[in-house]
Structure formats: structure tokens, C-alpha cells
Design a protein around this nucleic acid. Structure first.
Lengths: 227, 227
DNA sequence: TCAAAAGTGTTAAGTTTACACCCATGA
DNA sequence: TCATGGGTGTAAACTTAACACTTTTGA
């Protein structure tokens, strides 16, 4: 069977990317959502999305689309999976690949985000989302939670320097449950790659709290992570 | 922006499915592989694959493609993820979605499998595979291992009635490590949905071994699974 | 009668959980 | 001076891991 025919008897599809963008602020996990200003489903809330182009891999498309919204590069992203129900997009048959991203809420380009009509929403109080975006969010959240318990990906949601209280409240938000402070700090103390710095953060309390830093090199050499 | 234009400015892609088909036999995990009798990469080993069609979801396409090879229906399948590198298929740009399947090696249609030139290969001694199929296999294996430790999906690889020795050797194959027999049986005994039957299997030993059965109804009501 | 797989409990080690008070500081 | 968040250790409960011998039976 010649090449041209082998492939060309089959149909082609639009392939899109949808991004579940996690941020962490004031003790809450948030998602960056767009109010669509185009059809279909104009005026409704959706994930940031876009179409895969000819000259890019799906991973690159996800990076591009995240960059278009946030201005960020080199962001931690993971694929969530492909969503391929026939009528998932009522406008056309589109197969979508979802990715989640973990960003530091201080770093992104606020004007760019505003210009896309995007807003942060508390992950526990999400508005209704278009299509199957809610399903994507739920799947992303589960995958992220699982991974965050076993790999130090959570630090992507924090500034470079953070207090142990911030770190704990991040993990409480990820797991959706409270954690014992003393047990938490005991575990952190055992991880050498969570380094104590000389700096003190006075913004959260009168007394001030020690700032810590994640050291990726130490982690890669020696690290066992478990929170 | 009118519907037709919004979508139609974007390119379309062939979307394929690749199936990682696990079977369990003689204490080993095996994969069902095809020797391709068509271009590209004719004569090389590959996963069973096919193209998504217009009138089917990607999940349905995966079911269809598995059925075409094995004759099986209602098989346990899970998505592994989308593989979207530009040159992953040297013949054409194809985005592939991988699924893994767990089948009982007694049940499939042997003639159909033969007619596709497919063979079982020990997962620890795989031949070289085309394209990015090896990467798909590795990812599928990790996902399956993780899931099998926490949900009773392993039973899909066993006949309806099985001995505890079979069950243990299945989990040893999945984890790639040996398990203590007494500790293993202790854990099994605590799971009410792994039911002892009245039947004895004499094929594996002179003495004979008790046969057990997985009871899905009991699991759904009360089940905690952890091996 | 013996080889081969089936079956069976106990103890030590390690991990996880529960729990309450003092400290430092700015308002 | 006091309200607020920062910081610290111990003991009990539970879970996991290590370990060896007896039973049955067909060849």
C-alpha cells in the first residue's frame, strides 16, 4: 500500500489544547479562567485554549498557549490527557489535549491576562465551565495532587523564598485537608533540599518567619520527597 | 467571528490510537505486538494501532481497534495520553493517543490474532519498537503499576477463578519485585471481596490449591484495596 | 518416599498520629 | 500589654517487614 493512500483514506481532525493553570494565593488554590468573547459559548467561563498548528508538537502548542495568556516561559506543565468525545465542542469535532500548569502568581504578565479577559477563581468555588472543561479540571486536579505528594512540584506555585507556614498552607490547599504543624515541620526538616535561608519574612506576622528555598540540585542528587 | 472561520483557519491532523495490550501468562507480564506488514517500518515490531474515524469518540476508537485484533469486548482500558511530536511517525504528521488494555490471556480470539501477525512478548524482553511506541509502553506500564496498587484492576488479567499463588505472582510481575507469601496472604484475607470458593485447582500442584474469585459487588460496597 | 507447591503466626522495626505550650514582636 | 502567627518534642497507635516449618499428594 503506497504511503499516500495508507494515510489519506482516514479523516483529519482539529486538535486543540486546553490549559488548567493553577496559582496559589492567600491560602487558596486558584485557576485562571477566561470569559469567552467569541462563539461558541460566548460569555461563558472556559479554560485557556487554542489549536495545535502544523509546525509544533502538542507540548510546544501547550507552552505557546500558556505564554500567549501569561507571558511566562519555562513553566512546569504536564499533560492531563486527550478528550475525544464526538460532541464535546458543539461547534465542530475537535479533539482536545489538556495540560496543567503550575505558576507563581507573582510572576505573570497582569496586563496580558487582563487583555484576555481572564480571572482567577478559587478552585473550590468554580463557576460553570463550557464543554467538558470541568472534567478536565477534575482530572488535572487529581493528577496534580497525586504527583505533588511524591515529587516536589508544589514549589512551582510558590515564590523562590517562602515560609514554612506558606508551604504548609499550600499542601493543605492541594490535599483539601489540614495538616498537623509539628508533624509537617518534622517531615520538612528531613528533606535537605528544603534549605533554610538567613532571611526573615516580616509581612505575615509581627515576629517574622524564617524563609526557605528549594534547592533543585540537592534534590536531584539525594532527594526523597514525601509530604 | 463566525463559526466557520473560527475553526477553519486551523489545520487538521490524522489522529491515531495505539494499544498497549497486557496479558499474564506463566508468571510473566506480556504485551501483544504486531509485526507490521505494511509501510512505513514494514517488518518491524509495533503496537496495535489504527485511525480515529469521524463517527467515533477516541475511547470508542480504542475499543474498536482492540476488538479488531482480539475479538474482545468490554475490556478494561485506560488512556495513557496523547503523543504529539511532529516527526513521531516519519510517514505523515499523526497525533496518537495511547491506551492500555488488560486482557485475560485465555479469552481472546487466537485465529484473529494470528491473522494480524501478532505475538506475545515478555515485557522485560521487548524487541525494538517503531516510532515512540517504547515510550508509550513505559508510560503505560508506570500508570498501570500505580493504579494496580490502589484499585483491583489486576483481576482483569486473571481467569475468573484463580489461586493465591497466581495472584501473588501477578503482582510480583506488575511490581517487578518479589513479595513475602505470608504478608501477601494476610493482606488478601482482609479484603472481603476476594472470595474463597469451594473449588480446588489441581493443575499447579499435587496437593491442589484453593481457587478464589473477585466479587465486584462487594468491592463497590465496602472495598478498600491495597496490595 | 520424596519432591513440589500449599498453607499458616509471631515479633521487631519503622512509621504515623495526636497533642500543648512558649516566643517574639508591633500595634 | 496583649493579640498574632512562629516555633518546638514526646509517647502511643498502627503498619510494615522479616522470618521457617508443616501439610498434602502424585509420581
Amino acid at each position: 500500500m503506497p504511503k499516500r493512500n495508507y494515510y489519506s483514506t482516514h479523516p483529519k481532525f482539529y486538535v486543540s489544547i486546553d490549559c488548567i493553570i493553577f496559582g496559589f494565593q492567600k491560602g487558596k488554590l486558584n485557576l485562571l479562567l477566561l470569559k469567552r468573547n467569541f462563539e461558541p459559548s460566548k460569555g461563558n467561563w472556559s479554560l485557556m485554549g487554542g489549536f495545535v498548528q502544523k509546525e509544533e508538537s502538542t507540548d510546544d502548542a501547550a507552552k505557546r498557549i500558556l505564554h500567549e495568556l501569561t507571558g511566562l516561559e519555562k513553566v512546569y506543565m504536564e499533560q492531563v490527557g486527550a478528550f475525544g468525545e464526538i460532541d464535546r465542542d458543539p461547534g465542530e469535532r475537535v479533539i482536545s489535549i489538556a495540560y496543567y500548569a503550575l505558576i507563581n502568581i507573582d510572576d505573570y504578565d497582569k496586563k496580558l491576562v487582563q487583555s484576555h479577559n481572564a480571572h482567577w477563581a478559587d478552585i473550590n468555588k468554580l463557576p460553570e465551565l463550557i464543554f467538558d472543561h470541568r472534567e478536565m479540571v477534575d482530572k488535572a486536579r487529581n493528577i496534580m495532587k497525586q504527583k505533588a505528594s511524591v515529587k516536589p512540584i508544589g514549589f512551582n506555585l510558590l515564590p523562590e523564598l517562602f515560609t514554612l507556614t506558606q508551604l504548609q498552607s499550600l499542601y493543605e490547599a492541594i490535599y483539601g485537608e489540614t495538616i498537623d504543624k509539628r508533624n509537617f515541620r518534622k517531615r520538612v526538616a528531613e528533606m535537605e533540599f528544603i534549605e533554610k535561608t538567613e532571611e526573615i519574612d516580616k509581612s505575615g506576622s509581627k515576629r517574622g518567619a524564617r524563609l526557605y528555598r528549594m534547592n533543585g540540585d540537592i534534590y536531584r542528587k539525594t532527594g526523597k520527597f514525601k509530604i
